[in-house]
Design a protein around this nucleic acid. Sequence first.
RNA 1: GCCCAGAUGGCGGAAUUGGUAGACGCAGCAGACUCAAAAUCUGCCGUUCGCAAGGAUGUGCAGGUUCGAUUCCUGUUCUGGGCACCA
Length: 982
Amino acid sequence: MEYNFSELEQKWQGKWNESKAYKVSNTSDKPKYYVLDMFPYPSGAGLHVGHPLGYIASDIFSRYKRLKGFNVLHPMGYDAFGLPAEQYAIEHGVHPAVSTEQNIANFRKQLDKIGFCYDWDREVLTCDPKYYKWTQWIFLQLFNSYFNPITQKATPITELVKAFETEGSTQIDGLRATVKSFSAEEWKAFTEKEQQDILMEFRLAFCGYGEVNWCEALGTVLANDEVVNGVSERGGHPVEKKRLRQWYLRITDYADRLLNDLQKLEWSDAMKEMQTNWIGKSTGAEIDFKVKTVDRQPLTDNEANVGSDLQLKVYTTRPDTIFGVDFMVVSPEHELVAGITSAAQQKTVEEYITYVKSRSERERQAEKKITGAFTGAYAINPFDGREIPIWISEYVLAGYGTGAIMAVPCGDERDFKFANHFNIPITNILGDAFNGTEPNATKDAKLTNSGFLNGVVLRDAIQIVVDKLEEMGIGKRKINYRMRDAAFSRQRYWGEPFPIVWKNGIAYPLSESELPLELPKVESYSPGPDGEGPLANIPEWFNRPPSPLNGDLGGKLETNTMPGYAGSSWYFLRYMDNNNDTEFASRQATDYWNQVDLYIGGTEHAVGHLLYSRLWTKVLYDLGHLGFDEPFKKLLNQGMITGSSRFVYRADFIHISRNIIADIYISHGHYSKMIHMGTLEALEYLHQVNPELKFGVSVLNEYSKISLNSIHVDVNIVDGLELDINKFKEWRNNEYSASFLILEDGKYICGVETEKMSKSKFNTVNPDDLVTKFGADTFRMYEMFLGPIEQSKPWDTKGIEGVHRFLKKLWRLFYDEQKGKVWNEAEPTADELKILHRTIKKIEDDTERFSFNTAVSAFMVCVNDLADIKCHKRAILEPILILLTPYAPHIAEELWHSLGNETFIIDAAFPQFEAKYVVESSKEYPVSINGKVRTNLNLPLDMAQAEVEAAVTSNETVQKWLEGKAPKKIIFVKGRMINVVI
RNA sequence: GCCCAGAUGGCGGAAUUGGUAGACGCAGCAGACUCAAAAUCUGCCGUUCGCAAGGAUGUGCAGGUUCGAUUCCUGUUCUGGGCACCA
């Protein structure tokens, strides 16, 4: 009988399914264990071999835990809202709901083939109104709550209103720069709009303004990864920052709790560190500097800080260096800039701001080139009255701190370079610690040139300065967070609608009974007016007439939709009770399943999803809807399976008018040469290699710029490195059909890079073919065998044969091709029991520490050993099948039943390791001379040090190396090694 | 630029706490079985010197600590992930 994997895998998948072998109950005598995979987005490309890596690991662990006697929750579902489906709809006219459904069906088919033990009755879908009803409900919880600064907890906003009505603003005074103090009487006298505007400053889900990537030519907002080098990835159109009304989650209020509670989690230090850095807590001071303007332009009414008492507020972590401040740097979009710029600097400043507007935040931070402009105004040092020039530069971002920094070039790398570049004189406040050629960030030097601080150690000066500033009323201690509030709206169609009605500029929440607010069916996905989303094109949807149902509240529905992470911030709760119509999940269910015990997913979610889920859990906990305040107790980060990407290179010539002449694609060889060329040189080069290139000379001149962009192409339209030009022109709905390709030797050669396997990088490998050819068990074990789960590794199909051979070899321990069944009931020998128990120990240990690759090789060693000694004994083989079940469930199930068992193998008990079978009495010791192994010596394990030394020194090889001398020292580590020092 | 991780044979990787570097698998080479192929089995397989015995060298690079370092420390290079609208 042969190992017919495709037949037996199908058979058992069918039987498991029919008998609901993986159905999980919310009540059980067994201890619970919750294993969760990160929520997949069902992309049109289907599964690639990178996806199942984590799923196989979680499946192995779930099955292992079940064998160990746990009630294991192991669910799966889909993060089904998202940009790609909408983009697909724009390109192909297929409604996202339709394409998403197809994609999910496809995903499911692929997942099923791999033989996972998911309880599919618990499947959830974020785009299902039955699900997003509760996403909207949680949003309303956020909208209707604020972070109480006294209790440090989410609290219904009605409590804040009560506080305002009785004591005025005392509870929140000083928390928001935009909210001035008021009394209870004043509060009551405010108009509804005034009151609501104040409350909006405290709601955990709130509306504000934020900058987006606006592409005028496409009339839409672009995601960051749709913007490359300041132009849109598609078509190469210019992209600018645009200010739009946006929803946010006030995650900054939770910064401290999110930071402190990291201690409670069994996450890797790297992951905790990333979140810690993302939150970016720092302590320092906010300092107000008086500003002296020189001949500034007349101001218009709505410009900020009009009047004589202009002030610049900076945030610094080093107030001790205040005498070393040689210039100020303000973000170019800072509200003060327009008001302080001198007439002489007006043009320079405006030009610089235009330049900065075209730059993404990422580019601004990554830029090595030092740029900036002097505003012509000065800040006054409050201690010595020095006039400090105020500059603007792109490296200071508006959103962080106060959007302005005090620059101390003798103590800070970036400030030092800036000062040198613009010839700003540097004050040395560090004495000998500053040598004039490189800055020194020390806190341990004694201050010089620092007025009343001279001679004080910098570290100690921090307190002195802050005390003095507070005394003078021009500064205060301040804890700052790098983290910003989370943008929570998208100008898109395919997302959860906000249950919010706007009337007279006030946002009113819908009532719970009106949920779910369903997404309307639309014909077109084009953007609405003024950068609004597609929903703004459907007045029959967004116009809400007053009716008793909505409390006679007419108005206009919010036309933004929620972002991808809305649905994925709480999905792990829905699995616990996914059919509940009256609650997001019953308290009984969430209390039983509690935290996710093991969460498996990639590090790419380190600061996005994982932080948002923690926030949502904390808010639901604060409001009494949950009994735990951290969602994921243990986190296992699977490494990426990297793919091999292919690139084409687009040369954009940007005319001075900012029109772009694009659609020229150059082969890799040209690209590597042109990357070092100037614009005209590059153009000349192109004409030289391809005289057919018509455009150019007349349009371009010395003011034109060239920009070279690399663009991912589908690995499937590239053979090796050569692009299939016909397929390329048809690719993406003929998007590149009119492109002009500049070849080398008649071929278009693509660039290569190893990177994350991802649909957007078009470098994916599909698992289906592998499962068909080798079977699910082989595929599962091979994915695990590739390497440590936490490391990223390149995909290579070649080695899969080896794992397949191993399973065939295992099969042959049970069945011979000619003789048929070969297993027997004979008593096992000591050697056989040693192999078995050594394997039990190794598999148990390796599985517990998620070292699945070494577990697979332990199985191989075990089967090799048993085959060598021709062991076909049931007493040995049967327990091995149980060990193997988590890894290769189908073959284990088949052979288990062959042995005559009637129940599913997943309901068996994990074999018990017994140490007595593996004890050794002696050890083949390596004997080193000065750390280099020279010989081996077999000695009893219980031999004493003196006897060992005697045995070692009398050894022939050792004596040869000793050359008659006595050893200086003999190091003996029992059970490990012997080292003779000469 | 900032944050995080990684680097070991031709390739994926192993070495769990500082103790025999290269387990297991792929590829390769040689052989057995076969009319042949597939399948299976046996042996070899870091580099280098040597007929051999044996020696030298070797875990990105440069140092350091140690009887002993892939493992710990300092510096450095390269690669991958993230950087707030991909999910």
